[in-house]
Design a protein around this nucleic acid. Structure first.
Length: 1087
RNA sequence: GCCCGGAUGGUGGAAUGGUAGACACGAAGGACUUAAAAUCCUUUGGCUUCACGGCUGUGCGGGUUCAAGUCCCGCUUCGGGUACCA
């Protein structure tokens, strides 16, 4: 009887549906196991042979776990929102829901043919309102939360509001877009609108003006992971930077936890490494560089100093208020100031400890030169000076001098408070109280010029800028500064003389697309005309602008250390800027020395230290001196969450007074409205702008953007646990039972997108106490890509004649892709080729040995290469079981490999052979006899191998083991039930249809899925003899069969007395004999 | 540039430091057949030998070891990821 796979497969697929074989329910009597495939997007092209690879692997594991007594959750559904359906809708006017529905149907048909054990009752689709209700719901929770850096978790926004009402931003530890500083009184005095605007700075889902990746061709913004090399991943359209008001998710707040979580999960090292790189943690210091001659940035009139700023010298007149002295005086006074700082009096020190670090809510600097003086403490923001006077101030002369000094300072707008040492030492609190009062009284100065300058995270307010560096040890080697062209500091730094050059440079940069910038690494830049002061080395260094500095990372400005950074080096060489070596013995004549090793030189107090020591010391110094602070920077950006598209989840958001508000949860789901066209409106609004009555019941306008692709796929694994629940995303009961995904299989392409976002999303839900696990995917395997294997024919140029592969060198030929489906074992079906394309109807061929042999190459599997192989065709020709086995047989799961249908006959032959073992003379035939030891050995060897191979996902060797087993049973003519039955059970995960059929032929009436996995018995595997390979100096010469239990000594003795050994020894005496019992004998002789 | 992963017959690939090439495809030869398909048997890394056998062989060059595809060092090369990330 023939192996009729078509009949068998249809029969059992029907049986499984009718008997609800794959239905899964919570069952507390069994341990759970959750196996998940990455959410597929149902594309119009359908599945090609590469897609099911991971699905087959996970299906095998699911079935294996079930046979081992686990309650297995193995669901499937569709990530149904997406750009392709919408692009198609724009072109054809067809509603994307219709195309999506059609594609899903086709997908399902294809999947059904392969015999997967999915519980289809749990299917979800992201575009269904019952599903996206929970996506919208999660978004509302994110809007209503902020991230507490103190407890490292998401907290209700109400707690933050309470904090603001009580203490303003004092002691606030919350993730935010921008550091803000205000008091409780400030907060309470603000209007509702102002407060809401401020809260957006802290919410986990927030609306803000952001630099976004704008893709004009797609008409939408894209997330960082959707862009590669300046082109959109989907479609390859150019992407430019643009500032837009967009929804974002504060993923960056979770950067550290996302990084730490990687240590707890069983993913491949390379995938974890990719995520670590993407998160991009770097430890360093952020420090402030003051600008020597800042240019006023405010328009005429506004920039005028509001405070009295008269001065005796005319030169002072023109200066804005935000610097305290002129460059020349600064140079003269800075050394004095520095030494004074190092030797404070007892009283000065006491007061400083109470003033420093924003203790009074404003920033004080000590020994800061002001005009020609060096007062003890200066608050430039409030124009307040505190002096602490010693004994000698009581002298008559000194009193006069002090009066004059105060007068001058007051004429330039400062208020001077004087205290004696004694006052400070005996009653510091009353001194502080007076200072506090004075600060309050001087509120007039709060709205000074610094509003235009971004407040420094270091808390300083003068004009200057912060830079982030991981190498604070190289501070003495800073010879210039570089700003990103987009930086707002550019205006401040640019002098009149340089204004034109800077403008030209920035215009040119804007014109270059991101892609062009990446493509040609030309060194470009322009000098701003300004200088910054190195806060440690006190040197003046030029400030440049160049596009090698990114606006989006750190502060958009860098300190350049050409000696020890290759990018700075290239820039310095190009513009002839000084390069200072900082590491002993490092040769920097040709290139920079970037390594973090060596001994410091030319570095003041850091000299003689090793680099790591110097980094630590420099950080310490920077904090001590209030120059900056130690900081950890992450590359991970917040996820832009708005898309100017139709086919996505609508936001549960409406606008009142231009501020966003969340819909009440009772209004969910907010369903996607109908539109007349899937294009932006005439005024450039997103497609939802076309929807009629797109407003709340009260008439407030609803959000026009929709959510991005990753919105719906970020928590789908939770929904599968409880897919029909209309009260919650997932019930506590279901979540406590299923917990997390035990095995997740999918492609590497999700490494920096889905797998970051869903980990973030899960952690957020974990913080809210809604899910039990902090990490969603315990173990993850990346299946390798299936590449295409293309075939070529060779046309002789200018003719319609094709020449076979091995004769083509005799002609001038053009290789042409030919459909792999009309080629078999690289032999072209000539007739099919003529019918393939009218152009080739009259093609002539030059054959070799009567055949036309095609050339081949491994390429991406794509329609344009004519190398797409459809699983339906394979199933039609060989059956699903053959397809499943062959996909696994191709090679290791994780490795990429080309699909070549050629080898499939071998796998199919194996199934036929297995089938034939059950039949004699066309009749079903098996015996109930006791198996022989040899038969038992074959079976148990296979059980052992298959069990361990499945655990290690080494499915290709499993298939080989099955082949060996069947070949051996074939040789033994074995048809004993006690051998065949366990064999069908262990084959069932791989080839479920034939296994089910054979299992029933053996007399069983229940599904093979509910059988029990057999255990192997070592007793049957024992060998009585071992064939020892005998080698001389490592070269194997012959084998010797000896009893398995023979002792090491006896093996050595027997080997040495063997006549063949004597022959190879050739009279020489063995120097040493190595015997590895059960393995090998090696005899060492002198050469 | 940086990070990760590879490199083994004509092809896909196998090999806890212990007989390299399991298993399969392809190819060659043979059996059955009027013929084809299907099935079955034999051979199949290279060189050499009538044969027994010998030599050689896992990208290249070194090393460790009784023994290296496997471990270490240095390169070449091909994939994948990422990119002026300070």
């Amino acid at each position: 009887m023939d192996y009729n796979f078509r009949e068998i497969e249809q029969k059992w697929q029907k049986f499984w549906i009718e008997n609800r074989t794959y239905k899964t329910e919570i069952d507390h009597t069994k341990p759970k196991f959750y196996v998940l495939d990455m959410f597929p997007y149902p594309s119009g092209a359908g599945l090609h042979v590469g897609h099911p690879l991971g699905y087959i692997a996970s299906d095998i594991y699911s079935r294996y776990k079930r046979l081992n007594g686990f309650n297995v959750l193995h669901p499937m559904g569709y990530d149904a929102y997406g750009l392709p359906a919408e692009q198609y809708a724009i072109q054809t006017g067809q509603h994307p829901a219709v195309t999506t529905q059609k594609n899903i149907k086709r997908y399902r048909e294809q999947l059904d043919k392969i015999g997967f054990s999915y519980d289809w009752d749990r299917e979800v689709r992201t575009c269904e309102p019952d599903y996206y209700k929970w996506t919208q719901w999660a978004f509302i929770q994110m809007f209503n939360s902020y991230y507490s850096n103190q407890t490292q978790q998401a907290r209700p926004i109400a707690e933050l509001v309470a904090h603001f009402e009580k203490s303003g931003t004092a002691d606030l530890q919350a993730a935010c877009t921008e550091e803000l500083n205000f008091t409780a009184d400030d907060w309470n005095a603000k209007t509702e609108k102002e407060q809401q605007e401020i809260l957006l700075n802290y919410r986990i889902a927030y609306l803000a003006d952001m630099k976004v990746n704008w893709c004009a061709a797609l008409g939408t913004v894209l997330a960082n992971d959707e862009v590669s090399e300046g082109l959109s991943i989907r479609g390859g359209h150019p992407v430019e930077q643009k500032v837009m008001r967009q929804w974002s998710l504060r993923v960056s707040a979770y950067a550290q936890r996302l990084l730490d979580g990687l240590d707890k999960i069983d993913w491949t090292d390379s995938l974890k490494e990719t995520q670590r790189n993407w998160i991009g943690r770097s430890e360093g210091a952020e420090m402030r560089f003051e600008i020597v001659n800042p240019t006023p940035t405010l328009p005429q009139g506004e920039g005028e100093d509001l405070s009295p700023n008269p001065s005796t010298e005319g030169e002072r007149e023109a200066k804005p208020s935000y610097y305290t002295t002129d460059a020349n005086t600064w140079k003269l006074l800075k050394e004095n100031a520095k030494s004074m700082r190092l030797e404070p009096t007892e009283a000065e020190d006491l007061l400083w400890q109470n003033l420093r670090g924003l203790k009074l809510g404003v920033k004080f600097r000590r020994q800061q030169p002001v005009d020609i003086f060096i007062p003890d403490f200066v608050c430039t923001q409030k124009k307040l000076i505190i002096e602490v006077d010693g004994e000698y101030h009581n002298g008559k002369e000194q009193i006069e001098l002090d009066v004059e000094r105060t007068r001058i300072l007051e004429t330039i707008g400062y208020k001077v408070l004087r205290f004696t040492n004694e006052e400070v030492l005996t009653n510091v609190s009353s001194v502080l109280e007076r200072i506090r009062t004075e600060i309050k009284n001087r509120d007039i100065f709060t709205s000074n010029v610094e509003v235009k300058v971004k407040p420094s995270p270091c808390g300083r307010d003068r004009v200057g800028f912060d830079v982030f560096t991981t190498r604070p040890d190289t501070i003495y080697g800073v010879t210039f500064m570089v700003l990103a062209p987009e930086s707002e500091l550019v205006d401040i730094c640019t002098t009149a003389e340089q204004a034109e050059a800077v403008k030209n440079y920035i215009d040119a940069t804007k014109k270059r697309t991101e892609r062009e910038r990446i493509a040609d690494r030309k060194i470009t830049g322009v000098f701003t005309g300004s200088y910054a002061i190195n806060p440690v080395a006190d040197t003046e260094i030029p400030i440049w602008i160049s596009d090698y500095v990114l606006a989006g990372y750190g502060t958009g400005a860098i300190m350049a250390v050409p000696g020890h950074d290759s990018r700075d080096y290239a820039f310095a060489k190009h513009f002839n800027l000084p390069i200072i070596p900082l590491i002993e013995g490092a040769d920097i004549s040709e290139e920079s020395f970037d390594a973090k090793e060596g001994i410091m030189i030319n570095s003041g107090f850091l000299n003689g230290l090793t680099v790591p020591e110097a980094i630590a010391k420099a950080k310490e110094y920077i904090e001590e001196e209030g120059i900056g602070k130690v900081k950890v920077n992450y590359r991970l950006r917040d996820a832009i969450f708005s898309r100017q598209r139709y086919w996505g989840e609508p936001f549960p958001v409406y606008y009142k007074d231009d501020l966003p508000y969340m819909l009440d949860e009772s209004k969910l789901p907010l369903e996607l409205p109908e539109v007349d066209k899937y294009l932006p409106t005439e005024t450039g609004e997103p497609p939802l702008g076309r929807a009629k009555n797109w407003a709340t019941d009260d008439g407030y306008k609803l959000e026009l953007n929709t959510m991005p692709g990753f919105a719906g796929s970020s928590a789908y694994y939770l929904r599968y646990m409880d897919p029909k629940n209309d009260k919650a995303l997932v019930s506590t009961e279901a979540n406590e039972y299923w917990q997390d995904v035990d095995l997740y299989i999918g492609g590497t392409e999700h490494a920096t997108g889905h797998l970051i976002y869903s980990r973030f999303w899960n952690k957020f839900l974990f913080d809210l106490g809604l899910v039990t696990k902090d990490e969603p995917f315990k173990k993850l395997i990346n299946q390798g890509m299936i590449q295409g294997r293309s075939n070529f024919v060779y046309r002789i140029q200018g003719t319609n004649t094709f020449v076979s592969l091995n004769l083509k060198d005799q002609y001038d030929v053009t290789p042409i892709h030919v459909d792999v489906n009309i080629v078999s074992n690289d032999v072209l079906d000539v007739e099919k080729f003529r019918n393939w394309n009218p152009e080739y109807k009259n093609a002539e061929f030059i054959l070799e040995n009567g055949k036309y042999i095609c050339g081949w190459a491994v390429e991406k599997m794509s329609k344009s290469m004519f190398n797409v192989v459809n699983p339906d065709d394979i199933v039609e020709k060989y059956g699903a079981d053959t397809l499943r086995l062959y996909e696994m047989f191709l090679g290791p799961l994780e490795q990429s490999k080309p699909w070549d249908t050629n080898g499939i006959d071998g796998v199919h032959r194996f199934l036929k052979r297995l089938w034939s073992l059950f039949f004699r003379d066309n009749n079903l035939s098996f015996s109930n006899e006791t198996p022989t030891p040899e038969e038992l050995k074959v079976l148990h060897k296979t059980i052992k191998k298959i069990s361990s191979d499945i655990e290690t996902f080494s499915y290709n060797t499993s298939v080989s083991a099955f082949m060996i087993c069947v070949n051996e049973l074939y040789t033994l003519k074995c048809n004993k039930k006690s051998i065949m039955e366990p064999l069908t059970i262990i084959l069932a995960p791989f080839a479920p249809h034939i296994a089910e059929e054979l299992y029933h032929l053996l007399g069983n009436t229940t599904s093979v899925c509910d059988a029990q996995w057999p255990l192997h018995n070592e007793e049957y595997l024992k060998e009585s003899t071992v064939k020892y390979p005998v080698s001389f100096n490592g070269k194997v010469r012959f084998t010797l069969e000896l009893p398995a239990d023979m002792s090491r000594e006896d093996v050595e003795k027997t080997t040495l007395t063997n006549e063949q050994t004597q022959k190879y020894l050739d009279g020489k005496t063995p120097k040493k004999v190595i015997v590895v019992p059960g393995k090998i004998v090696n005899i060492v002789v002198a050469p």
